[in-house]
Design a protein around this nucleic acid. Structure first.
Lengths: 350, 350
DNA sequence: CGAAGATATGTAACCGGCTACAGATAGCAA
DNA sequence: TTGCTATCTGTAGCCGGTTACATATCTTCG
């Protein structure tokens, strides 16, 4: 039996004021430490609040303050191993400042994205950390207006929203250069969706690295994937197939534009009994947990996922505090992680 | 240039009413399809709302309705591969019914859990899907009172909260029986924290299986882990060590009470050049994505994670709709997934 | 024709906070 | 003493919705 009553009857500030023998104005001031309140009044109010197990109704407060202390995290799918770390970063940074975060999974569907944005506007969230797919910037602003701030993560848009990303061109360059430095020249790419800047940029990095090494770009070596495991596997199948038909198309290495696809590719290679890395080397992207447990362990380009989340949330809070700030953009550096799936060249193909 | 204005100036129902030439009462009725509204009035209101890009303020509404259409998902860490699928299930089921979900990572700290619960009470969330660690049920209710409904996922508490879980005893039994059926008799366990029912129950299943097979329980074969990779690795090290000192303690199989620890154990075994499964077989629990990409691929006990999330959210909505419902409890069935990390017995130890 | 019921609409109170404003008291300088 | 400032408190209106209640019109039926 404890004193602080736990009977969920919701208490209002009126009851607190009454018990403390003051007006609501004084109670409010005491609870929020604003304005003038005498020592005794304050302690009486605080005591009353404690006794009644008073919890302010933040929704009511948001009516007058115009702030909800809520932000949203809109992403394709938490189940994609890239996102949990980002989400955790966002939540950590947000809760540190007293903000709650609403989670929204869009599956990359523009329809769902639009639905969520409308819902979020109705909720008057103060800001949104957004990893969109194809929704054009103009569409976003037409929905949310300037009712809440927006920070884009891992995406780029023409619209002037703040951005946190890693240097994908650099990342693609790192991965490809690594393979080149091992002596590979016939390097295939399993790209991400080319409708996404992420997909495009990594591919650009690949081309840059090729160009710098004087290796001609061969269209037939790039297959567009979908950032998913099954897609990576299918893409690899296609490469193996095409390679078989045209021995001139041999390849000795593959750059998969994310780890999920790399794992899929690994599966395909294994099924065809093509040894990795001795026959075909492979580099992934993201450095998700999976990457370090595959056999061979996956060489990959690591992104600071958690930090991206933290930075995004912090950037968002800054923007919320000052809507007139010039556009912010934070570009983090990717890092090559060399494990067992890359090794010196020894060309061959399924 | 589009008609529907997108200038974020937030519109109120008063402005809609004014533009439509009706009172707010009529506007409200038209927008919510309640009460009597003439055809013309309704269409004038809807048109006005469209023109003004009106989005209701749900926080204001919640003031009168007492409902926020928000639930919370409180879990230790989204970054733990077990949870994203659960989270996705919760969010899918919730959003299907018009609810938003607030994400809270507690790291299993009772302190953080309490803080979040207080915050959630202030937000007047309608319900909470909770995977707690050590907070006693009484403590939970003392904080949230009956201001919101609660469903426990993957945890059990004395307090009469609704529960969604899988049959952990059965799961432990399945894993262990599988090993026994392969001829193993010296089977170690890397358990979860024994302070959690999850940890206890799986261990109980292990003991049951042993008992049924007439294999004596050997205390020295159980090491308490923490459900994390590094903990699994450390535990395996200890087993190997102890095994070395006392050849009589040889073991030929390990049941790791979750996949993360199994992966850690795998690492330790590999470092000691102990072959899996030929020298030591190993079974995990959860069937997270990692399990199917390790080499050897991990045999494990699968939990229907996504379904657990969906069921938890649906159960929560039911409870919210009817607080007087008798206590609900849903026990899902775990499923043994046999891959490459288990094989017939051939005892040996590091 | 009058009464009852269905339809339509507006006024105003209320949800739970915050705060502008005004009034009261006390301290202190002139 | 007066006047001014600093401190303290309460009344009442507002935030953006919902809704009970009152009022008004139009049918419909005995």
């Amino acid at each position: 039996m404890q004193l602080g009553n736990g009977d969920g009857n919701i208490t209002t500030i009126y009851e607190v004021a009454e018990l403390a023998g003051v007006s609501v104005a004084t109670a409010s001031r005491a609870l929020n430490n604003t304005g003038y309140v005498s020592k005794e009044a304050r302690s009486r109010v605080l005591e009353a609040a404690r006794r009644l197990n008073y919890h302010i109704n933040v929704n009511a407060r948001s009516l007058t303050s115009g702030k909800t202390y809520t932000i949203a995290l809109v992403l394709p799918d938490v189940t994609n191993p890239f996102f949990p770390a980002v989400a955790r970063g966002v939540e950590d940074a947000a809760s540190r400042k007293g903000y709650s975060v609403i989670l929204c999974n869009t599956d990359g569907s523009p329809r769902k994205e639009a639905d969520y944005l409308n819902m979020l506007r109705s909720r008057r969230v103060d800001g949104i950390v957004f990893t969109t797919s194809e929704l054009p910037g103009a569409r976003i602003s037409s929905i949310i207006g300037d009712s809440s701030a927006v920070v884009l993560v891992d995406r780029d848009l023409d619209e002037p929203y703040d951005i946190v990303k890693t240097d994908n061109v650099k990342g693609g360059f790192l991965a490809t250069s690594h393979l080149i430095s091992l002596g590979h020249t016939r390097i295939a790419v399993i790209s991400g969706p080319l409708s996404l800047t992420t997909g495009m940029e990594r591919l650009q990095g690949y081309r840059d690295a090729l160009g710098q090494a004087g290796i001609p770009f061969d269209e037939s070596l790039v297959v567009e994937g979908d950032f998913r495991q099954e897609g990576g596997r299918a893409a690899m199948e296609r490469l193996i197939e095409q390679c078989r038909g045209r021995p001139s198309a041999k390849l000795s290495a593959v750059f998969a534009c994310n780890d999920l696809m790399a794992v899929g590719a690994l599966t395909a290679l294994e099924e065809h009994e093509i040894a990795v890395p001795s026959e075909v080397a492979i580099v992934g992207y993201d450095d998700i947990a999976l990457a370090s447990v595959t056999r061979p362990r996956l060489s990959t380009v690591a992104q600071p996922k958690y930090e991206m989340g933290v930075l995004a949330a912090e950037m968002l809070l800054r923007r919320m505090a000052n809507p007139n700030l010039p556009r912010q953009q934070e570009v983090l550096q990717p890092m090559l992680v060399i494990r067992d799936s890359t090794l010196e060249r020894r060309s061959r193909c399924g």
